[in-house]
Computed example of a mutant assay.
Amino acid sequence: MLDLTLIKAITLDLDDTLWPIWPAIERAEKALDDWLSQHAPMTAALFANPAARHEIREHVIRSRPEFKHNLSAIRREAIRLALYRSRENPLLAEDAFAVFYAERNRVTLFEDALLALEFLSSRFPLVALSNGNADIQRIGISNYFRTSISAQQFGVGKPDPRIFHAAAGSVEVAPAHVLHVGDDAALDVLGALNCGMQTVWVNRTEHLWTHAGEPHETVTSLTELCDLFPR
């Protein structure tokens, strides 16, 4: 059971916890494809082949292991490699990535997200903790957070305990006094449990829990999360 008296800070996952990620990624992919069609049509044709797109991404991951947790760098380098293979200007990669990244951050928050952020941030310091490359300032929610820690910034991602410890340290709170909230059973819940944090699993789609360790609480919305706290 969740012990509310221990909580001094909250770490929050972003993608699929505060907004659905795949609609934003699909829009970003479309914006990138449209831009490449205008400025680098041979590269656009190459990326239109899913197998070729996958092979390029895997090549980047294998050849640049330092990019393992840096989704932005992987995407940018994949675009650069595709431009090079298509005999078009690799310098276009920066502008192409900028188009993708702008759309990737044009997310649609879940209906319960803003009210939950207002409620929680008025009571606890919040830390955004993500394996993704979302920019909370671009999205317009940075004022709710004390700080933001991402895998690409930190160098390792969830469920590695180091990133959870860094999140707790960023607000000068011991892990035992942190509540981590997220949608991913393994990355969020088990990762946080393994470093001594309390956890709330945000299970919006009625997934079954299949792991040995269990979250302290399970909710189907951020409204239910807020209802756990006295008003």
Results as ranks from 00 to 15, higher is better:
Pro23Asn: 07
Thr210His: 13
Lys158His: 13
Leu228Trp: 09
Gln137Tyr: 11
Pro65Asn: 10
Glu172His: 12
Asp3Val: 06
His180Leu: 13
Pro50Phe: 05
Asp16Asn: 12
Asp3Ser: 07
Ile61Leu: 06
Ile25Asn: 01
Arg162Trp: 06
Leu179Thr: 03
Phe110Leu: 10
Ala166Asp: 00
Leu179Tyr: 11
Thr108Ser: 13
Met197Gly: 02
Leu81Ile: 14
Pro65Ser: 12
Ala82Gly: 15
Arg123Val: 04
Val60Pro: 11
Leu228Val: 10
Glu66Asn: 09
Asp34Arg: 00
Pro215Gly: 09
Ile56Met: 06
Ala192Pro: 00
Thr17Val: 10
Ala31Phe: 14
Pro65Met: 09
Ala28Phe: 14
Leu187Phe: 15
Ala176Tyr: 00
Ala51Lys: 14
Asn133Leu: 05
Glu88Gly: 07
Cys195Ser: 08
Pro159Met: 11
Gly169Asp: 08
Asn203Asp: 02
Ser130Pro: 02
Lys68Val: 03
Phe119Cys: 05
Ala176Glu: 02
Arg85Phe: 12
Ser37Phe: 15
Glu217Pro: 15
Asp188Cys: 11
Glu58Asn: 02
Asn133Tyr: 06
Val60Met: 00
Trp19Leu: 06
Pro125Glu: 13
Ala176Thr: 13
Ala24Gly: 03
Asp227Val: 03
Ser122Met: 03
Asp188Ala: 10
Ala128Thr: 10
Arg162Ser: 12
Ala186Met: 05
Glu111His: 08
His54Glu: 10
Glu94Ser: 09
Ile25Thr: 04
Ile149Gln: 01
Ala24Gln: 09
Val178Asn: 00
Ile61Ala: 12
Ala166Asn: 01
Ala166Met: 05
Arg27Glu: 08
Trp209Glu: 04
Ala28Asn: 12
Glu217Thr: 03
Asp34Cys: 06
Leu109Ile: 14
Val127His: 02
Arg80Tyr: 13
Asn203Ala: 05
Leu36Arg: 04
Leu225Arg: 05
Ile74Thr: 05
Gly191Pro: 00
Arg146Pro: 01
Ala185Ile: 03
His207Trp: 01
Ser121Asp: 01
Ser130Phe: 13
Glu55Asp: 08
Arg62Pro: 06
Arg75Cys: 08
Arg162Ile: 01
Phe229Thr: 06
Ser148Arg: 00
Ala78Val: 04
